[in-house]
Each structure stands twice: as C-alpha cells, then as structure tokens.
Amino acid sequence: MIYKAKKKDLNLLYQIEKNVFKDEIFSLSKESLRYHLNNNLIFIIKYEKINVGYCLWLERKKYYRLYSFAILPKYQGKGLASQLLKYCIEKLKEKSLQLEVRVSNEKAILLYERFAFKKVKVLKDYYKNENAYLMKRV
C-alpha cells in the first residue's frame, strides 16, 4: 500500500530517515521533514502492515524533483522501490521528473533507468567528495 504522507507521519518519516541515512551529512532533520510535509509531496510505502520507505518530491513550475528516496535496509531487494517509483510516476505524470544520484549508487541508477530516467549531466562535487548524475524523465 502506498499513500500520501500527512503531518501525523512525521515521527515515522524521521525514523526511516535516521535508519537509512544515519551516517550521511545530508540526512533530513525532523524540522526539515516537517517543512516538507507542509510544502511538498511525500509518499509512504507499507509492506506487511509496516511503513518501510518513502519518497519526497519537490514541485517546481515545469517538473518534480525527487529530493529523497528511502527504503529501510531490511526491506530492500523486495521490489518496493520499484513499486513506489512506479506509483509516483503515475501520480506525477503531468510534469517531467528529475533527480540527482551519486555516480557510485549503481543500484539506484539502474532503478531509475528502468523507469526511463536518462543521465543528462555530471554534477561535479555535488556530494561531499563525489560527483552526481542529473537524471531526467520527460
């Protein structure tokens, strides 16, 4: 089951964020997640009655930008990221989609390419000590 996050989901989102991105400097704070709940789109995926992941989209004039995508490690490899991404593409189809991804994140790049995202640019030092690909789906 996939649903649009509401304010009551703040603690749940924060727990997923901390679990998935625990050692990352860009990990979202609870305040950042609160802001995004009020101003952007967050979709949560449930698996066996457990909330196991989310994706956060920023709406721009001509496109949506995937800002954060997380599936709890214990539930990765079950096709949940594909289900969630497919759902988002269907829901956000009135605009093009784009995202940034670490060049070393081969699993994510393959996922995005399976859903017709194309690498359009290398973003130098986008992450601390690492380049990123800008990927778009038109």
Rank of each mutant, 00 (worst) to 15 (best):
Asn11Ser: 12
Asp125Met: 07
Lys119Met: 08
Lys46Cys: 02
Tyr54Ala: 08
Lys22Asp: 13
Lys128Trp: 09
Asp23Trp: 09
Gly53Lys: 01
Cys88Glu: 09
Arg137Met: 05
Val52Ser: 10
Leu111His: 10
Ile45Phe: 01
Lys62Thr: 14
Met1Gly: 10
Ile25Val: 13
Leu10Gln: 04
Leu85Val: 05
Gln98Lys: 12
Met135Val: 00
Lys136Phe: 02
Leu123Gln: 03
Lys18Ser: 13
Leu10Tyr: 02
Ile45Pro: 02
Leu72Tyr: 03
Tyr87Thr: 04
Leu111Phe: 06
Ala5Val: 00
Phe43Gly: 00
Leu72Phe: 01
Asn51Ser: 15
Val52Ala: 10
Lys8Ser: 11
Lys136Ser: 04
Ala116Pro: 02
Lys93Ala: 08
Lys124Leu: 06
Lys8Val: 09
Gly77Arg: 11
Lys46Ala: 02
Val120Ala: 02
Gly77Asn: 11
Ile44Cys: 00
Glu130Asn: 03
Ile16Tyr: 04
Asn39Gln: 12
Ile45Gln: 00
Glu94Asp: 10
Ile16Lys: 01
Leu12His: 00
Ile2Pro: 04
Glu48Phe: 09
Ser82Tyr: 13
Lys124Trp: 02
Val101Met: 01
Asp9Thr: 04
Leu28Pro: 02
Leu123Glu: 05
Arg60Met: 15
Ala116Cys: 11
His36Ser: 05
Gly79Ser: 09
